[in-house]
């Protein structure tokens, strides 16, 4: 049953690792702005749309000539 010492120390160690990670993330200001990242992550879609936009522009150029 002395395995319980190992198990306990591992569990406490893991807990402490996460706790330290939490403290560091707070310290770096990761929780200061909780809104903008939620919007920012949706912006990736733009890459798909860029192609037709390029064409639009060229068409406009042709039209204006």
């Amino acid at each position: 049953m002395s395995i319980i010492y190992v198990l306990l120390s591992i569990s406490v160690l893991v807990a402490i690792v996460f706790f330290v990670a939490f403290i560091i993330s707070v310290k770096r200001g990761q929780y200061d702005d909780t809104y903008t990242p939620s919007v920012r992550m949706l912006f990736e879609d733009e890459l798909v749309k860029e192609e037709p936009l390029q064409q639009d522009k060229e068409e406009n150029k042709v039209n204006s000539k």
Partner: peptide, 27 residues
């Protein structure tokens, strides 16, 4: 709005000298 965030974070397309820009929307 979200458009504001997007355009301000893509400032480098308007001026190549902008290395990065980050918006804090609540502030």
């Amino acid at each position: 709005c979200s458009s504001c965030i997007w355009v301000l974070e893509n400032l480098n397309k308007l001026d190549k000298n902008v290395l990065s820009s980050q918006v804090n929307f609540p502030e």
